[in-house]
């Protein structure tokens, strides 16, 4: 176990180092972050040069790279060029909304997909399977932004039961624990949450269903039936548990990409979050913010992968920490 952990730690650090190096050079290939200022009639080249020097952009690339490595390993993500604030502050101001929206949504959609997928696979070719699987395929094929706008149109414009935009009503204030605030938050929360969960669960069902069907044909399932194991036990303990192995990675990694956010949801429902922030960082060539986001993303992928490996061993005793 100890050796396993050490080895994982070693590979994780190597991966992290390679990724951050790649990120550093990749974002610098995307163009000059101050290009827009250069055509601004209010700005002279001297101003642009001074801003570049204050943000260290005038230094040779290798110096910038060394500074960057020192900063990253020292836990410092730098200053955002667009927001002119520490990167960590920018990310933290948006992260709570994303976490509160996405963690419950991913968890619930994973759960729904698991339950419905198992049911579809178990009763394959039944009416239930036909209805659920075909709905899943139809919804998966609809462009997400269209689906979201449709929900918004039905619930906010026609039925007028949910608000049109935002995570709270204008004037309600930032995070607070008062009942009024929580109710208002939930009122705004319900539609983006529903759309995200609805779409994600339906999108995942076919994976669960097909991996379940693969397992159904195994000999041990036939044996279990023959020796009279209760149906429910066969379904969940024999079949679903084994089928889950192949989809645990897909479901688990969805958490790793949290900070990537739900950019379309955030845009359409005017919901604050890290998704739009990432998009704007790319548009504005905000090197440091982009680096910061990718570093956090990499870290979360590495951590989640590590957790998934641990869960594998729990699910499948054949997997040993070697």
């Amino acid at each position: 176990m100890k050796r396993f952990l050490l080895r994982r730690l070693y590979t994780s650090i190597t991966t992290f180092f390679i990724v951050i190096t790649f990120v550093f050079f990749a974002v610098r290939l995307t163009g000059d972050p101050l290009a827009e200022l250069e055509d601004d009639p209010r700005i002279t080249p001297e101003v642009v040069d001074r801003i570049k020097s204050l943000f260290g952009l005038d230094k040779p690339v290798y110096v910038q790279y060394i500074n960057y490595l020192v900063n990253v390993f020292g836990g410092e993500l730098g200053y955002s060029l667009h927001y002119k604030r520490p990167v960590i502050d920018v990310i933290c101001s948006k992260l709570p909304y994303t976490l509160l929206l996405l963690i419950p949504s991913i968890t619930l959609s994973n759960y729904i997909a698991y339950k419905l997928g198992v049911e579809c696979g178990w009763r394959r070719r039944s009416t239930f399977d036909l209805v659920v699987s075909s709905t899943a395929i139809i919804i998966r094929s609809i462009p997400y932004f269209w689906l979201a706008i449709l929900f918004l149109y039905i619930f906010s414009v026609q039925l007028k039961i949910t608000p049109l935009f935002g995570a709270i009503s204008p004037g309600k204030g930032g995070f607070s624990l008062s009942l009024g605030w929580i109710m208002d938050y939930l009122w705004h929360y319900i539609l983006p949450f529903t759309v995200l969960t609805f779409r994600a669960s339906l999108a995942l069902i076919p994976y669960v269903r097909s991996s379940l069907i693969e397992v159904l044909g195994e000999d041990y399932v036939v044996v279990a039936h023959a020796k009279g194991v209760p149906i429910r036990a066969i379904k969940y303990k024999y079949v679903a548990r084994n089928a889950f192995l192949s989809i645990a990675t897909i479901m688990g990694l969805r958490y790793a990409f949290l900070i990537d956010g739900a950019i379309l949801t955030e845009t359409i429902f005017s919901y604050p979050g890290t998704g739009r922030m990432v998009y704007e960082a790319i548009i504005n060539r905000d090197y440091w913010l982009l680096q910061g986001v990718i570093i956090i993303l990499t870290l979360s992928v590495i951590i989640v992968n590590f957790i998934i490996d641990l869960i594998y061993a729990l699910l499948d005793p054949r997997v040993k920490y070697r």
Partner: peptide, 22 residues
């Protein structure tokens, strides 16, 4: 008495918000 700037990134939604009087 008060002025509020609300951030609505999607133009279609902003349009609906004006139409609905929000």
């Amino acid at each position: 008495d008060e002025l509020i700037y609300v951030f609505i990134p999607e133009a279609n939604v902003a349009l609906l918000a004006v139409q609905k009087g929000e």
